[in-house]
Each structure stands twice: as C-alpha cells, then as structure tokens.
Simulated scan of single mutants.
Amino acid sequence: MQIELLSNSVDIGKYLKNINVDSGGVAILSLKALHYIVYIRDLHVGAANILKQDALSVGADLGVPRGTVVAKNPYVNCILIATARQLQTLSKKELAQPFGLKEVAYKLQEILKVKKPSHAEVMGVINANDDSFFSASRFKENSAIEAIERMIEEGADIIDVGGVSSAPNSVHVDKAEELRRVKPILDLIQAKRLYDRVKFSIDSYEPLVIEHALMSGFKIVNDITGLANSEVAKLCASYDATAVIMHMQKTPQIMQERPEYEHILSDIYSFLSSRIQEAEAFGVKDIILDVGIGFGKTLEHNLMLIKHQEHFLTLGKPLLVGASRKSMIDKISPSLPKERLGGTLALHLESVKNGASIIRVHDVQEHVQALRVQQALMNI
C-alpha cells in the first residue's frame, strides 16, 4: 500500500475520474473538496446564533465573537467555513430564516455560481508620454509600432496605449496635448491594420481621445476614473466597445495622501457595483473591472485586493489587474522600477490564481511564459 498527500489545488474531478468513480460520485465529491471562507459583517446576533446551529448541522462551522450566544452585542462579524456542498445546503436553509438571513442565503447562492477563469490574457503597455514611471514603456510613433509588433510576436492578447501618466503626483495634461501624443500611434495602428492581429485598448478618460481611438479600430476603453464622465459611457455604447471600470480614490495627483477605507473589499465592491449599473444604463454591454492596484491604496490595501480577487467575481464581470513594476514591490523588497520584474510576476500569478482574467504588464514575453507554466501546474 502507498499513501500520497495531494495538493488542495488539484483538479479533483480529474483525479476522481482517473480512479473510475461514477459521474454522480464525481459531482458530489468535487463539491465536498471545494472549501469556502465567507466573512459576514454586521450580522444580527439572532441570525448569527441560527446560522451557527444550521452550519454545525450540515458539518460546516461559523466563527462568532465571544458573547454571541447570550446576545452581548446586537450585531456581530462572523466567518463561515464550509464546503461547496455544505454552502449549497445552507443557502436553502437560510431562505426561511429571520433576521436578514434570507439576504445571506442569496449571497451564498451568488458565491456558489462563481467560476474562476480557465485562462488569463496578457495586456501589453505602450506609453506615449515622457513621464511614465517606468521609462522602458515610453515610445513614440515608429518605435511604438515596433514595440507593438514585438509584443504581438511575444504573445500579447491586448495592447493598451496611453498618452498621460497616472502615477502618483503626476502632472495633469489637457486633452489636446494628450491627443497630440497618441494620435500618430493611433493613425499608424489604423494604417497598418494592426487591430486585425491583436485587440487594442485606449488608456484614457478623455472623450476626445477615446473617440479617435475607437475610430482607429480600438475595441477597449481603459478608464482609470471608472466612467466618471458619462460621455465616455455613451461612446463605449455607441461603438460597442468594452469598458474597463477601474477604482481610484481621489485623483493621481493626491491619491496616495493617506488613503483610507472603512472596509477595503466592501468599499470597492460597492463602487464597482454602482458603476456597472450606471454603465449598463447607458447601454454598455461588455464590462471589465479593475480594483485599481496602487490608485489610492496602501501596501496592505493592495495586497488584500490581490489576495481576495475572487470576492469581486460575484459581480459577474472579468477582472483586470495591473501591478506591473509598481512601487508596492519596493515597499516589500526595496528596488527601482527596472528591478521589479520578479515581484511583478509574483503579484500577477497570484492575481490569476485568485480570479483575474487579464493582467496589464510591461514585460509581455516573461508573463506569457509564466502563465503557461502556471497553467501546466494547474492542469496536473
């Protein structure tokens, strides 16, 4: 007899099929192998006591503060730990319970519907400005086209072109100057029909610039303001373009001045949820979400958002993460932007593992290779 300890990250269904478990058993056992940790804030203490007993009755558990059983506080924070199968049973049980547990049940059902993407796309970065924080990403006209063609050969799925730096303390640039910077690149992309070879994204929140890009064959609008200007939403709708809605606290000029949140995950979730509703009201059909790593966040905020990407999948949209060579890496391992490739790869691979569908990068070839290796490991 031989006994082997398998990784929790294996495709358990594949292993069960390999030992010839029947199809019904594969489905049941796969649900038992998948575990969830659900943080519930401000739950009525009566609901917490009911949920605790219901969780125990199905083999799950609920972590509650001391004094909950005697209702020491009217509302408590709890942590539910359950398999997918247990969560499924609980979501049905709580539909008939009082104290707001019906809402908990609906949320558990949303969580159960989440499916992590099986593949992540690589978005290469082209900056048409002189003040981007990473100098190797700055290009003009013909050099930009050469870089784009190289990124395509290296395996990029999307190329993101921008003319204004959004780094902390960056200088504001007016829309005419922004268009002047990017127009030669947009025109060359259109003339060479490069949009037939790869998807293009315009990194802008100025309608003047965005419309020129969309007329040049671009299909994605990457808006760091999260569609704050309704004219951008209207353009996305009229050109049937995909909108990337990003979260940013304040503006690039002041966003890193003592950023604060009540609850980082819930606060950004609420923002993205409201912006999705607004965008869809304007007729935007395809939406990608970006939690905005480095845009008004501390190091801890950024790490929390990368670690818990899966939380945002319940919004039902693909997720983009852009942590490439950002200063958060320097706070963990002191380094200049040109020395942060290793840290970037670690952050992006973790993001993909936790649910990201797109990663925005300065180093296409290295990321394509890293993702292929990660995918091979996940398929074992």
Score class of each variant (00 low, 15 high):
residue 339 E to V: 07
residue 30 S to V: 07
residue 372 R to H: 09
residue 284 V to D: 00
residue 313 L to R: 03
residue 259 P to Y: 04
residue 129 N to I: 05
residue 96 A to N: 10
residue 70 V to M: 11
residue 307 K to M: 12
residue 71 A to G: 07
residue 236 C to D: 04
residue 358 I to R: 01
residue 53 Q to I: 14
residue 261 Y to E: 04
residue 162 G to A: 04
residue 253 Q to P: 06
residue 100 G to I: 02
residue 164 V to I: 11
residue 243 A to H: 00
residue 190 Q to R: 11
residue 308 H to I: 05
residue 231 E to A: 15
residue 301 H to C: 10
residue 146 E to C: 14
residue 60 A to T: 06
residue 287 I to L: 12
residue 225 T to G: 09
residue 250 K to R: 13
residue 169 N to Q: 12
residue 179 L to R: 04
residue 298 T to V: 12
residue 162 G to P: 00
residue 284 V to Y: 00
residue 169 N to M: 10
residue 27 A to T: 15
residue 173 V to D: 07
residue 160 D to G: 02
residue 141 E to T: 15
residue 221 V to K: 00
residue 82 A to E: 04
residue 2 Q to I: 13
residue 160 D to H: 02
residue 25 G to M: 07
residue 331 K to M: 14
residue 83 T to W: 08
residue 367 H to W: 06
residue 122 V to N: 02
residue 173 V to N: 06
residue 88 Q to F: 13
residue 17 K to L: 08
residue 85 R to L: 14
residue 7 S to R: 07
residue 280 E to G: 01
residue 152 I to T: 04
residue 48 A to V: 07
residue 84 A to V: 09
residue 120 A to S: 12
residue 353 K to Q: 09
residue 155 G to P: 03
residue 135 S to D: 12
residue 305 L to H: 08
residue 135 S to N: 08
residue 17 K to G: 02
residue 191 A to M: 10
residue 307 K to Q: 15
residue 246 M to R: 02
residue 73 N to V: 11
residue 359 I to G: 01
residue 96 A to R: 06
residue 333 S to R: 11
residue 20 N to W: 05
residue 311 H to R: 05
residue 220 I to V: 14
residue 132 S to R: 01
residue 161 V to Y: 00
residue 121 E to V: 12
residue 72 K to W: 08
residue 223 D to W: 03
residue 163 G to I: 01
residue 34 L to F: 10
residue 8 N to S: 14
residue 319 L to I: 13
residue 207 P to H: 07
residue 68 T to R: 01
residue 194 L to C: 04
residue 41 R to F: 06
residue 148 I to C: 05
residue 78 C to I: 09
residue 11 D to E: 13
residue 216 S to K: 05
residue 277 Q to V: 14
residue 223 D to N: 09
residue 26 V to F: 03
residue 58 V to N: 00
residue 81 I to Q: 07
residue 70 V to C: 09
residue 200 F to Y: 02
residue 85 R to E: 13
residue 224 I to Y: 03
residue 228 A to D: 13
residue 42 D to M: 05
residue 322 G to P: 02
residue 2 Q to D: 13
residue 350 E to Q: 09
residue 152 I to M: 05
residue 216 S to W: 04
residue 290 D to H: 04
residue 153 E to A: 12
residue 77 N to M: 10
residue 254 I to W: 03
residue 46 G to Y: 08
residue 357 S to C: 07
residue 235 L to P: 01
residue 170 S to F: 06
residue 221 V to E: 01
residue 153 E to S: 15
residue 40 I to V: 14
residue 151 M to F: 10
residue 169 N to E: 14
residue 328 M to Y: 11
